Computed example of a mutant assay.
Amino acid sequence: MAKKNEMNENIITVGVDDGFAATDVVVMEGGAITKTMMIQSRARSGIHGTSVIGEAEDDQPVPCYETDGVKFTVGALSDAESARFDDYPFSPMNRTIVNHALRLVGLGGKKLRIATGLPLSVYYQGSDPNAEVIARKDRSIMTPVACIDGSAMPLIVEHKVFPEGLSAWVDYALGDDGRLRADPNESVGVIDIGGRTTDVAVVLPGRRIDHARCGSADIGVLNVVEQVRVALLKRFNVEMSGSQIELGLKTRSIKMWGKVLDIGTEIDEAVAQVTDGVLREVSRRLGQAVDLDRVLLVGGGAHLFRDVEKRYPHVVVPEHPEYANARGFAKYLNL
């Protein structure tokens, strides 16, 4: 049977991990990953324009949109709204950020088959997919988004919703060509640390999901961001935005008053506190994980919460773990 991309050569396959802190995009063309990109999941209601001295760069799309009668400006504005609210996956803000990310990666005007995700505790109702919630997410993503300047938008012709965490196992188990590359007799745990949630999953031999050990907890990178924000307020008496701190997590520094200041101590203290909560949730699901052949550590928090590796000696961190779910989405769609 021919693959979907062979039957629809003009339709591009895209995995979009539309998380509460970041939106990760993976593009597959011709059975291979051709592009990856990440943006902060930040936007603000209304039109908030900026201008460029001289000529604007052609590869910087206008970040102002309208959907369902609501206007948004996408980007790390100083007063951008956080995506840390329960209905974010189904919101106009979410679909606007997703469409902006697709435009940034060069897919404006292209026909797309995309997949997005939901946390495990939202995607499943017991051991069954929650059809109502999945349909709600599908309706939201398929709702039109228009660019204020009339530029061509991505043309989403098909959309699927997959469970986060388990999609990281798909990325691990399948090569870009869709062929199984993992031992089918393995038992694999997945720890997926995202912006707001930490998903834990177990896949048994025969691709069976152990639902009793799967679930989500409301803890992740954004908890670190909040604690660092409070620490910086105490240290400098300055209120820093979440988007500024999120960028500072990577460089362990932040710019104030024209100077680059080290915030490594604040980050380390925040990570240590949040790690305790992450490990409690993981331990509740996996125990000591002695029955598992390996444990995958993925998500945007994989680099930040490295102490998880000390708890489990058979942890595997894939290359670019922040893209694991989006890669899994794209690979599954490409079958």
Rank of each mutant, 00 (worst) to 15 (best):
E81H: 09
G69Y: 10
A146I: 02
K160Y: 06
T67Y: 07
G106P: 07
T67V: 03
Q273Y: 13
A115K: 00
I134T: 06
A2F: 09
L112V: 03
V157Y: 02
L232T: 07
P92S: 08
R181N: 08
E239R: 15
A270N: 06
A131S: 12
R213T: 03
T143F: 14
E66C: 09
H320K: 07
S187R: 12
G150K: 08
F90A: 05
F162P: 00
T34N: 02
E57M: 04
D218Y: 14
Y332N: 02
N334E: 10
A217S: 04
F329I: 00
R207S: 10
Q40N: 05
I245V: 06
I191Q: 01
R42Q: 15
I148E: 07
N185F: 15
N334L: 03
Q244E: 14
V74R: 01
V238Y: 11
S41R: 10
V25M: 09
D199K: 03
Y65E: 06
L249F: 06
G150H: 06
A302N: 09
I156F: 04
A272P: 08
D307V: 12
D293R: 09
K35I: 00
A83I: 06
L304G: 05
G75K: 07
N185R: 09
G19V: 04
E158D: 14
K255L: 12
N223W: 01
E9R: 10
N223K: 02
S51C: 05
G165V: 00
F236Y: 15
V290L: 13
R208S: 08
V14S: 01
R139S: 12
I245N: 02
R252A: 10
A212Y: 14
T67D: 11
R139K: 11
R95L: 02
D210V: 09
Q288G: 11
A2L: 08
L174P: 05
L174I: 00
D86V: 14
I156V: 11
V225H: 01
E319M: 05
L107W: 00
R44K: 15
V317H: 08
G258S: 11
K310A: 14
G242H: 04
L118F: 09
A152N: 11
S283I: 15
E186N: 13
N99D: 01
G178Y: 10
V260N: 13
E309K: 15
V230R: 05
R284F: 13
T197W: 03
A326M: 03
S41N: 02
I209A: 02
A302F: 04
R139W: 03
G299A: 08
